[in-house]
Design a protein around this nucleic acid. Structure first.
Lengths: 173, 173
DNA sequence: GCATAATGTTGTGGAACATAACAATCAAGG
DNA sequence: CCTTGATTGTTATGTTCCACAACATTATGC
């Protein structure tokens, strides 16, 4: 019942909020009629708790690398789409371009990415991983892999695939 | 592929980070051997996207009430455990007691909760919902119910129950 | 009774995010 | 061509959330 992020380093976020567990149309056994929905039955609350747990563990996992979650995500996207411009990266990760600038600066200062002028648009800057960036991302992804294995230890492979599908249905556009 | 929280009001959080989709022991079809794991296959990334989607929608849902997520969660816990002390509330929601103080002050200023001395511990303050707090929580939970129905529209009742179970397995302890 | 722990409180700093404004460039239309 | 408007990157600034440290008051254990 206690939250997961009580001591996971820097990752404690506030808390979820109340959410109703079941749609109104199908009253279930948990709180049949006028009974007040409990936080435990709410998907949103469970989602936040799981999120806190994973992000907290991920933060401590990434600690030795010196990279934060956002930076790793940025590296992964840049590897997947070499030459992506800043605006595109921001859109993909939900980061506004103003806030993206210092993050890009960090990665370039660490010599993990290169920033070159985009071929046909002299406003835009195309982003590429450096050799060091490739290597660093590989090492980091290995850690992240171990992290997922750790936090998802209670789930079978089929359950993980199920979960992935269900979450995607929620996040879908 | 674009993130869900591009325009959902105040809810845009940075982004997830790379996570490996499958445990090392069972190589799957998505990225069989040395292939780099993609963000799309990572449970942690899907979790963050779903989290952003739901929390963003919840924030706009709660806007007309003037209450933030944390405050609603606090009210729900206090209703479930009347007389709970601040420390207990903080532990349950993953909020440090220092940060809890101004939140409690907000709720008392709104006349939604009462703060009385705990019976057998003159340090602690026991928390109770006021009549206004009860009513306000009821009205708010109705909105939250509609919010869950909206964001989980793509999931059947059985899928929602599955999801709840899987998420709880992650957040456990 | 005294040392130690727990509870609430205050103050402070940092990280993440939003917003506004600006220069340079592109794109479209007159 | 050239002017208007949109786009990209950038800087600056404010807000919010959270962590951490320190303190007074009260409980607890020896």
């Amino acid at each position: 019942m206690a939250n997961a992020n009580t001591n996971v380093a820097n990752a404690a976020q506030p808390a979820n909020v109340a959410n109703a567990a079941e749609p109104a149309k199908t009253a279930n056994a948990a709180h049949p009629q006028g009974s007040t929905p409990s936080l435990q039955d709410l998907v949103g609350y469970a989602l936040r708790r799981a999120h806190n747990r994973m992000m907290g563990d991920l933060a401590v996992t990434l600690e030795p690398t010196g990279l934060r979650r956002v930076l790793v995500a940025m590296l992964a996207v840049i590897r997947a789409k070499p030459g992506i411009i800043q605006m595109g990266l921001g859109t993909e990760l939900g980061i506004q371009r103003a806030n993206l600038v210092p993050l890009i600066n960090e990665l370039t200062a660490l010599d993990l990415i290169d920033r070159r002028l985009a071929p046909h648009d002299r406003r835009a800057l195309a982003l590429f991983l450096t050799a060091k960036g490739e290597a660093e991302l590989d090492r980091t992804l290995a850690l992240v892999l171990a992290h997922e294995e750790r936090t998802l230890a209670r789930l079978t492979a089929s359950e993980r695939k199920q979960l992935l599908g269900l979450l995607d249905k929620i996040a879908a556009d």
